[in-house]
């Protein structure tokens, strides 16, 4: 069985993995590196629960192979807080009750962090459109949009 060597910079930590080429980035994060904050929802790129930041931009970790990201910088929800202080988006999600079951939340937060950094979305419509790759089965959307708006004001 072929194994490929991959170096990844995950949440600031350099990690070397020997993995089978069919391992998705999502499975590598969860099963090999035990970073289980990133969730497996549909596993087909339809729900956004697996959203992580690849070189700062949100992607679906379930639809990409870990071997293709040698040298890449990956940020998961575990890498957003600094010195025990939550990222402003994380704090805004708590302050505005922007979730119910929480399963989609880490993906929502990763997408929202990138949305703020890119600075293109301003209105609620634009936030909704930019976030449409993150499905919330509990329907917490109004509070998610409000949390993002508030985090936008704070940053």
């Amino acid at each position: 069985m072929q194994k490929v060597s991959v170096a990844l910079l995950i949440n600031g930590d350099r990690t070397q993995l020997e993995i089978a080429p069919w391992t998705t980035l999502l499975d590598a994060l969860r099963d090999r590196l035990h970073l289980t904050g990133t969730k497996k929802g549909c596993d087909h790129g339809q729900c956004g629960a697996c959203t992580v930041l690849l070189n700062g931009r949100p992607i679906n970790a379930c639809l990409t192979l870990a071997v293709m990201h040698d040298g890449a910088e990956i940020t998961t929800v575990e890498g957003l807080a600094r010195d025990g202080v939550l990222h402003p988006v994380q704090q805004a999600f708590i302050d505005h009750d922007a979730f119910q079951c929480g399963y989609c939340t880490s993906g929502q937060i990763c997408s929202a962090v990138a949305l703020l950094r890119e600075g293109r979305a301003r209105t609620r419509d634009e936030i909704r459109e930019t976030m449409s790759g993150n499905i919330c089965r509990c329907g917490a959307y109004p509070n998610i949009v409000t949390a993002i708006e508030e985090a936008m004001k704070a940053t």
């Binding site: 790129g45 949100p58 449409s132």
Partner: peptide
């Protein structure tokens, strides 16, 4: 088309 994540890939 698609979503932010997919367009980034």
């Amino acid at each position: 088309g698609a979503s932010t994540q997919l367009r980034n890939m």
